[in-house]
Amino acid sequence: MNKLKTYQIKISIATASAVAILFVGCGDNYKRVGQEAATTIYPQGVARNFTLTYTEAKKEMSSLDSAETRVIAILKSPLNKDFDNLEFQYKEFPEGLQVDFFDEKNQKSVITADYGIIYSQTNLIDLQGNVVITAHDGKKLEAPQLYWDRKNKWIFTQEKFTYTNPEDGTIMDGEGMDFNREFTFFNAHKTYGLMTIKEN
């Protein structure tokens, strides 16, 4: 009997050890990746019914001067999230935006988009979703996405676009283009489809 009890005790110890090893081996030491590991990022500021007016002085000023300024752009959005507290700074407009900008003659052109993001350090604006630029003379550009380089006053896309010019009655479809803000220089990378030309 002694041998049987010893044998049963050994089996019980072996079973208990196996269960303990099983529980220790099943510990949660899984390193989270992807969405699970994403750090929550909070904006430093949130503004609703946001309006920002950009102005510039008509002449260069010193620190003690005062001078007349002119409005060069007005940015409006239902929601603005300011992430300038991050290392890579940006401002986001998740519910869309409208930018009215004015040339030297105070003629207004308008840009609208469903979503926008301004990269503060590079002065690049990424506009997405139903992007429409309407120039003061009625020229219109429609595209799903556009980039606007504010520093160089240059707009470009690699997406499909439709360009309407009421001056000569033409409608042009294409893919990829770049142009200056005033529409005085326009470079379409690829054009296709029908071009409607107004007859006199």
Rank of each mutant, 00 (worst) to 15 (best):
R48G: 04
R70C: 01
E68I: 04
N130Y: 04
M61I: 14
T122F: 07
E199L: 10
M195E: 12
E142D: 06
A47H: 05
P94F: 00
F156Y: 15
Y163E: 02
P144V: 05
L4P: 06
A20R: 09
D103W: 09
G25W: 10
N200P: 12
Q89Y: 00
G45V: 11
G25I: 01
S77H: 02
N165M: 12
I9T: 05
I21V: 15
M172D: 01
K31M: 13
A20T: 06
M172F: 08
R70Q: 09
K198P: 07
K91F: 00
D126M: 10
N200S: 11
K105A: 13
G45Y: 03
G27C: 10
L52W: 08
V46Y: 03
T164M: 08
I117W: 07
E60I: 08
L127K: 07
P166E: 06
P144K: 00
K58N: 14
F23L: 15
T55D: 04
I21K: 06
K140I: 01
A38I: 11
G174Y: 02
S63F: 06
T162S: 15
V46C: 07
T196W: 06
K81F: 05
N165R: 12
I171F: 04
Y54S: 13
T162L: 13
E56D: 05
K198C: 06
N180G: 09
R150D: 10
P78V: 01
H189N: 10
Y7L: 10
A143G: 09
R48A: 09
N130I: 04
A143C: 14
W154G: 00
D137R: 02
K153N: 08
I133S: 00
N123F: 08
N130A: 08
E36W: 04
Y54C: 00
Q35H: 11
G116P: 12
K31E: 12
A135L: 07
I117M: 12
Y147A: 00
Q8F: 12
N106R: 12
A67Y: 06
W154Y: 13
S17T: 14
T51M: 11
W148H: 10
L194T: 14
M172Q: 11
T51K: 12
E182Y: 08
K151G: 03
S109V: 06
D100I: 06
I155L: 12
D173I: 11
L141W: 01
P78G: 01
A188T: 10
E56S: 08
G193T: 09
F102S: 00
K198S: 12
K140L: 05
S109T: 03
Y90Q: 01
V33D: 08
S12A: 14
M177L: 15
E56N: 07
S120F: 07
K153A: 10
N49M: 13
N165D: 15
E68M: 03
I9G: 02
Q44K: 14
T69E: 09
E68K: 11
T162D: 13
T39Q: 11
E175Q: 15
D178S: 11
D137K: 03
Y42T: 15
I133M: 03
S120R: 10
Q145K: 14
F102C: 00
E167R: 13
A38L: 14
D149Y: 04
D149S: 08
G138H: 06
I155Q: 02
A188H: 12
F179I: 02
A73D: 01
V33F: 13
T40Y: 14
A37G: 05
I41P: 03
Q145A: 13
T69N: 13
I117K: 15
N180L: 12
G174N: 02
R150E: 13
Q35S: 11
K81A: 02
K108Y: 10
I13A: 03
Y119A: 08
